[in-house]
C-alpha cells in the first residue's frame, strides 16, 4: 500500500509533533517534522506532501495570545506555499495550538480565546461528528471520538456560528460535556472545501485502545482519534 507523504509543521515551542508523527505513521503515511525555517528553505518539502498538520504545543510560549506568532510566521514566511498546497488538494489539519494558528492565519473561521473556567485544563472529552459536515477528515465517521484536551485558550467563538454550522463547516461538537465554553459546543471546524480542519482535542493521543483512561470498558477501535488520520491517508491515496 502506498504511504502518502505527510508534513508535521512545528514552530519554537510546538511539542506534540512527535505524537502527531506517530499517529500519521500508524495511519499509513510517511510523516516528517519540519520547522517553518526548513519549509521556507526548501518549499518542495511541503509541495511534495499531500497531508500537512500544524501540531499542538505552545509555539512562542503563547506570548501575545496562543498561536499568534506562529501564524505570523506562516503568513509571512510561508503564506503562498500553504495557500497553494490547499488549493492543489492538500489536506491540512491544525490540532490545538495548530488550530489556534490556522484561525489566526485566516485559514479557518472563528477565533479561540480563554476557556470560560479561566485556566488550562487537561481531561478526556467525547466528540460527536456532525452529520452535515463537509470535512474530509471526519467523513463517514458516525461514532463518537474520544480524545484528551490540554489547553487554556480553547473557547471557539464566531460572530455568526449558525452560518458556519449551516455551511457544513462544524465538523465536531463536544458530546456530553463542553469543557471550555465554546459556542454551540463546537470542538472542530473546517474550511468551505472540507480539506482544512482545526480542532482543540488531541486525536493523536488516542491511536491505540490502551491509551484510553477506561480502556477495556469501551468498545475497541471504535472511538479512536486515529480514525481522522486514517481518513486523510485514504483520501490522499486517492
Amino acid at each position: 500500500m502506498r504511504r502518502p507523504c505527510a508534513v508535521v509543521i512545528a514552530g519554537p515551542g510546538t511539542n506534540r509533533d512527535p505524537d502527531t508523527e506517530a499517529a500519521l505513521e500508524l495511519a499509513g503515511s510517511e510523516p516528517r517534522t519540519c520547522l517553518v525555517g526548513d519549509l521556507t528553505a526548501d518549499p518542495a518539502l511541503l509541495s511534495s506532501a499531500t497531508i500537512a498538520v500544524v501540531a499542538g504545543g505552545f509555539s512562542y510560549g503563547d506570548a501575545l495570545g496562543a498561536g499568534r506568532l506562529l501564524a505570523l510566521d506562516l503568513e509571512i514566511a510561508l503564506g503562498e506555499h500553504l495557500a497553494v498546497f490547499v488549493e492543489r488538494g492538500g489536506l491540512l489539519l491544525g490540532i490545538c495550538n495548530g488550530f489556534q494558528v490556522l484561525t489566526r492565519a485566516g485559514l479557518l473561521p472563528g477565533s479561540l480565546t480563554h476557556n470560560d473556567g479561566g485556566h488550562f485544563i487537561c481531561d478526556w472529552v467525547e466528540l460527536a461528528p456532525t452529520t452535515n459536515s463537509v470535512s474530509i477528515w471526519t467523513a463517514g465517521i458516525t461514532d463518537v471520538i474520544h480524545a484528551p484536551i490540554a489547553h487554556g485558550e480553547g473557547r471557539w467563538v464566531h460572530p455568526d456560528p449558525q452560518a458556519i454550522a449551516a455551511g457544513g463547516q462544524v465538523a465536531l461538537r463536544y458530546h456530553g460535556c463542553n469543557p471550555n465554553g465554546s459556542v454551540d459546543d463546537v470542538a472542530g471546524v473546517c474550511d468551505a472545501t472540507g480539506r482544512v480542519l482545526g480542532l482543540m482535542p488531541h486525536p493523536e493521543n488516542h491511536i491505540v485502545d490502551r491509551q484510553h483512561p477506561n480502556a477495556g470498558r469501551i468498545e475497541p477501535m471504535t472511538h479512536l482519534g486515529l480514525r481522522l488520520f486514517q481518513n486523510a491517508v485514504e483520501y490522499a491515496r486517492g
Partner: peptide, 23 residues
C-alpha cells in the same frame, strides 16, 4: 489541581495520577 497539568502529552501515560470511571 491535576487537571491544570498536562498528563497526556506524549501519549504514553497509561497509569494516570487520577483514575477511575469518572477520573
Amino acid at each position: 489541581l491535576l487537571r491544570r497539568y498536562d498528563h497526556e502529552i506524549g501519549g504514553a501515560t497509561l497509569g494516570r495520577p487520577i483514575i477511575g470511571v469518572e477520573r
